[in-house]
């Protein structure tokens, strides 16, 4: 196997790994907080679930970036594209925006959602407000994803 292909695959792995870590830590934080609230008030499961699910998007963004790389390389089909080392490096670097924005924003979105859980515990009617606050953090993962997609699209093979 050529080094270029290996680098490209490393890039897609990075997107999934870091996006996934960010989401896992984020969801972990919110999940713990909401279990605490639900032990007092089991009825809140539905409204807390949205907050718990929110930091999950970073992992999905990482996953879908990786999938775009896989499509581009033709790893699913029959013919795998041959890459030069520099093309592989380009794809690797194109994956970095979502990898890092996903990692950091996932964790911080988790923190915002976790404090949102405490807010919902006291003010059940204001459920959507912490959701919006969490979306402010997610913006940067969305922007990371956007640049990853545009970069991947622009790389000529």
């Amino acid at each position: 196997m050529e080094l270029g292909l290996a680098l490209a695959i490393l890039g897609s792995a990075f997107a999934v790994i870091f996006g996934g870590i960010g989401s896992a830590i984020g969801i972990g934080l919110v999940g713990q907080a909401s279990s605490g609230v639900m032990s007092e008030d089991p009825e809140k499961f539905g409204s807390l679930l949205i907050l718990v699910a929110l930091p999950g998007t970073q992992g999905i963004y990482g996953f879908l970036s990786a999938f775009l790389v896989i499509l581009k390389l033709g790893l699913i089909g029959e013919t795998v594209v041959t890459l030069t080392t520099f093309q592989g490096l380009q794809i690797f670097m194109a994956c970095l925006p979502i990898a890092f924005t996903g990692l950091i924003s996932g964790i911080h979105q988790g923190k915002v959602c976790a404090s949102g859980v405490y807010m919902v515990a006291k003010q059940p009617k204001d459920m959507m407000k912490p959701v919006i606050l969490a979306a402010l953090v997610e913006t940067y993962a969305v922007l990371g994803l956007l640049i990853t997609i545009i970069l991947l699209n622009g790389i000529q093979l």
């Binding site: 963004y61 879908l64 999938f67 969305v142 922007l143 994803l145 956007l146 997609i149």
Partner: peptide, 18 residues
């Protein structure tokens, strides 16, 4: 900030394709 419209729309399409 409105560029998110593209990213989110693409995300749906790509996951549906996956």
């Amino acid at each position: 900030s409105y560029s998110r419209l593209l990213a989110l729309g693409l995300a749906t399409t790509v996951i549906a394709m996956v």
